Amino acid sequence: MRRAAMTKSAHTEAEDNVSAELTVAAPAATVFAVLADPTTHAAIDGTGWVQESVDRAPLTEAGQLFRMDMYHPNHPNGNYQVVNKVQVLELPRAIGWLTGSRDDSGELEFGGWIWRYDLVPLGPDETEVALTYDWSAVPQSIREYIQFPPFGPEHLTNSLRHLAEVVAGR
């Protein structure tokens, strides 16, 4: 197993988004393949909220939906499920998704926040990965009961470090 090399790590905060960057010792295609595999997302998550992927098929196109089982102690049910919708899929440069859920009638609703990974090859075996959590489209009605971001900025850096570890294990 290769050791995950992390030569650069930083995070920035803006009014309605937070991002972090990390250089990963792997080709962009390898990093992208890990991100496009929903079964890796629990291992990548820096909060421990993502429990398991319900849908195991790789992410291959914009508009694709994939579900995740989640846990958060402040959620009314503790355990819950999110439905993500792929918004960006540009192999091997960018992948991102909106997070939502089904309401009581089964209708799909999205809260307005998106997770996005941008990959920049730095050579044949090194990729700069930027992770951005953007909540600029979250309506005021949701902002009244959810604080944004719902985690500290270190979450993104932790997620990128976990991503590098998963990639190194491939």
Results as ranks from 00 to 15, higher is better:
P121S: 04
Q64Y: 14
D69F: 00
F32H: 11
W115A: 03
D37E: 10
F151S: 12
V167G: 02
Y145S: 13
R93N: 09
D69T: 02
F66N: 15
E154R: 06
F148R: 02
F151D: 09
E21N: 05
A130P: 03
H72T: 03
L156F: 10
A94W: 14
R161I: 00
Q140H: 11
A26C: 06
E61Q: 14
P58Q: 08
A36C: 10
F66E: 13
V34S: 03
N158M: 12
E13R: 06
L22C: 13
G100K: 05
H155G: 10
E144M: 13
R56F: 00
A33M: 08
Q87W: 03
T47E: 15
P38W: 06
H72D: 15
A43I: 01
G96V: 01
Q140N: 14
A5V: 10
G152Q: 15
E90L: 02
I146S: 05
H155Q: 13
L65M: 12
L89Q: 12
V54A: 05
V24M: 12
L35R: 03
V120T: 13
L65A: 03
E165K: 12
A14F: 07
F110Q: 06
D103Q: 06
S9N: 09
E21Y: 04
S105N: 08
T12W: 14
H155M: 09
A164R: 08
L59Q: 10
E107R: 14
I146A: 07
T40V: 00
K85R: 15
V138Q: 06
Q81G: 00
P149M: 07
I114G: 03
L22R: 08
A5T: 12
S19I: 01
L122T: 12
P76H: 15
Y80N: 01
H72Y: 05
L156V: 07
L98D: 15
Y145A: 07
I142D: 00
